[in-house]
């Protein structure tokens, strides 16, 4: 072999990873690590000092993300990453707060928090690793599991209809909405960077294979899932989120659905409450 360095240099993302905690828990063929890697790349690309970031996760496979990033990071309770992040952001608005969590965490148990943070245009970046199932608990049906897909609690197929996450985010008032797959690693990293810089509530859905708990029951190896991501997706920036339901038979839309400028919660709060108003006399004064 030619030109092979004798001593290998370190991986370029190692300064952002708690290397003493590697290997991480994610299975072989899981896409969470790839999305995490894209997220770290995006943080690096911004050039913003690392101590101006904070990552908050909920519970689940992707909820472990906060445990591997070497910045101030919080692994909270199931579904509560967004209100925790809201507290951080309101108390210290100069921080870039990233929520890295899964579809079950953000959209089932934490669904209410998601729509309200979007409604408020809270200036946080929410990255949802969507593997269409509850991976950590063994592959139960999720709010994102496709209709008729099999899970350990819907063995004859899912009788329900899943959420269309970009549409939900859009309808709730998010001001940046995008969707990528883990295979679109470069687009995903660039999109996360753009979302971090975006003022307001930004939401990025990142599709990820779960070969062990979703793929196994639906006859889909991780490379089969990636093949679908490659062949059955179409990038259409500015597409109508109402058409963004996940149906690989008709094709899945990726891209940036929306980016609009609107005052953030922090900006509005400062504007309206930044200093005491004479008409707000207190009973006690």
């Amino acid at each position: 072999m030619k030109n092979r360095p004798e001593i290998q240099p370190t991986h370029p993302l190692e300064d952002l990873v708690r290397m003493d905690r590697i290997p991480h828990i994610w299975c072989s063929g899981c896409g969470t690590g790839s999305i995490f890697s894209s997220c770290l790349t995006a943080i690096k690309q911004t050039g913003i000092p690392y101590n101006k970031f904070s990552m908050v996760s909920g519970i689940g496979c992707s909820g472990r993300g906060a445990g591997y990033i070497n910045i101030d990071s919080f692994h909270t309770t199931h579904g509560r990453a967004i209100p925790f992040a809201t507290g951080i952001k309101m108390a210290k608005p100069e921080l870039n707060v990233i929520v890295f969590s899964g579809d079950g965490d953000l959209f089932a148990i934490g669904g209410n928090h998601f729509i309200h943070a979007a409604r408020r245009n809270m200036d946080i970046t929410v990255i949802c690793v969507n593997n269409l199932t509850y991976g950590m608990t063994g592959g139960q049906v999720a709010a994102t599991t496709p209709h008729r897909a099999k899970s350990s609690t819907t063995t004859a197929g899912n009788p329900e209809t899943p959420f269309n996450l970009p549409l939900l985010a859009y309808a709730s008032g998010a001001t940046y909405v995008a969707r990528w797959t883990m295979l679109h690693a470069r687009d995903l990293a660039d999109s996360i960077e753009e979302a971090i810089r975006h003022k307001g509530f930004s939401f990025i859905e990142a599709l990820s294979p779960c070969p062990v708990n979703f793929g196994r029951r639906n006859k889909e190896k991780s490379l089969d899932t990636l093949k679908k991501y490659y062949e059955k997706t179409i990038i259409r920036n500015g597409a109508n989120p109402a058409e963004a339901d996940i149906d690989f038979n008709k094709g899945v839309i990726l891209g940036k659905f929306l980016q609009i400028s609107k005052p953030t919660h922090d900006e509005m709060y400062k504007k309206m409450y930044g200093q005491s108003k004479p008409n707000e006399e207190l009973k006690t004064s």
Binding site: R80, P83, F84, G87, I88, H113, G274, S276
Partner: peptide, 28 residues
């Protein structure tokens, strides 16, 4: 009162969120 002293108030969507938000803020 809080805005008068440089603080922040938020009315969250439920008590779970209210309690969680104060933990996030406490870590700042």
């Amino acid at each position: 009162r809080l805005p008068h002293v440089g603080g922040v108030f938020i009315q969250m969507e439920d008590e779970i969120a209210a309690m969680t938000s104060i933990l996030g803020a406490a870590w700042t």
